[in-house]
């Protein structure tokens, strides 16, 4: 299998075109603006303080208007909620600075993944650039272009529709189940030492529990719909943090007994539309997310899409 970096060489080459301007110097103009803004700041400082005091009340009101969007089940329990990423308070979100060693380590890690066959997983020990002797769990999702095959793989747990409203037909899918994290680290270290290899790996087994299923549908005119179904069971506080939540237009809608979050977002000259809902029908929480561009999905026809996707659930 081709190395990923090589496989995208065509794109890199295209964007290395000599016609792309190579020289720019904004230092002088930026420094001038910084200087002039600084001077203006001192002149306006006293006035600004007074204005700021007057504005405090409205600013406070602004903070109070921070929005959360929640989907609840008929019992009133929150199944799903969205908040802006600025409200994220957990630790570990920020990856520490990648020093050259870590960079080199991750480059090898990605190279290994690129060369794995779809539907395989392994515990991998990379010898170089790895002073903490970290072991990576690396997997490649199963890939499908046949509806029969993907249905066979997911079994009864999820219904995979052949078509979606608007003339969209199944195109392809990728699927990942949870992994059994069963490997012997010491054995990997020993193997690496004995075989003097850049890295060594032990295959890992998949469980039967779906982690994520990504389905693509296509219509004759070339438009795509993306249906993403994922295990939402262990998501902390059932919360997803969204970048730029304020720039999205959202509305919780009721389809039968179920609440659905409808989103519109302007993307360039198009409007992206999305619906999200969460089910508990199979005894565990599954999150469904349907993404579309243009008018194919709108507030009026949401129920058609949900009926099609949930037919057998």
């Amino acid at each position: 299998m081709q190395n990923q970096r090589d496989s995208h060489k065509d794109i890199k080459d295209l964007f290395s075109d000599p016609r792309i301007p190579q020289q720019i110097d904004v230092t002088k103009s930026v420094m001038e603006k910084i200087q002039s803004q600084k001077e203006r700041f001192f002149v306006k400082y006293k006035v600004s303080i007074l204005v700021a005091i007057a504005l405090i009340a409205s600013i406070t009101t602004g903070y109070a208007a921070v929005k959360h969007y929640q989907l609840k089940n008929p019992q009133g329990e929150v199944l799903y909620q969205e908040k802006d990423v600025s409200e994220y308070e957990g630790k570990g979100q920020i990856v520490k600075e990648l020093d050259p060693e870590t960079h080199a380590l991750y480059d090898i890690r990605w190279k290994i993944e690129d060369n794995m066959e779809p539907g395989t997983a392994a515990a991998v020990y990379i010898v170089a650039h790895n002073p903490k002797k970290q072991i990576f769990t690396i997997s490649r999702p199963f890939e499908f272009t046949s509806l029969v095959d993907v249905r066979k793989k997911v079994g009864e747990q999820i219904f995979v529709p052949e078509t979606l409203p608007g003339g969209y037909s199944f195109l392809d899918a990728s699927l990942e189940n949870s992994l059994k994290h069963e490997y012997n680290a010491e054995a990997l270290y020993k193997q690496a030492e004995q075989e003097k290899k850049e890295y060594v790996m032990q295959p890992l087994e998949w469980t039967n529990e779906l982690n994520t299923l990504y389905l693509t549908y296509k219509e004759a005119g070339g438009g795509y719909l993306h249906l993403h179904i994922s295990n939402f069971e262990n998501v902390v506080n059932s919360t997803r943090y969204i970048v730029g939540l304020d720039s999205q237009k959202k509305e919780v809608m009721k389809i039968g007994q179920m609440e659905v979050l409808y989103t519109e977002e302007v993307r360039g000259d198009q409007v992206g539309r999305q619906i999200v809902w969460v089910t508990e029908n199979t005894g565990k929480k599954l999150q469904y997310e349907l993404n579309a561009s243009g008018e194919v999905l709108n507030k009026e026809n949401i129920s058609q899409f949900i009926d099609t996707v949930m037919t057998k659930n």
């Binding site: 794109i11 890199k12 964007f15 990856v95 991750y106 990605w110 990728s174 970048v243």
Partner: peptide, 24 residues
């Protein structure tokens, strides 16, 4: 990714996204 060859971790930091999902 395709031109500047940044790692997915770096891109995840820039875009506030999950690195694994960016990869796909």
């Amino acid at each position: 990714r395709g031109v500047e060859e940044k790692t997915y971790e770096e891109i995840a930091q820039i875009m506030n996204k999950n690195a694994a999902s960016l990869r796909k």
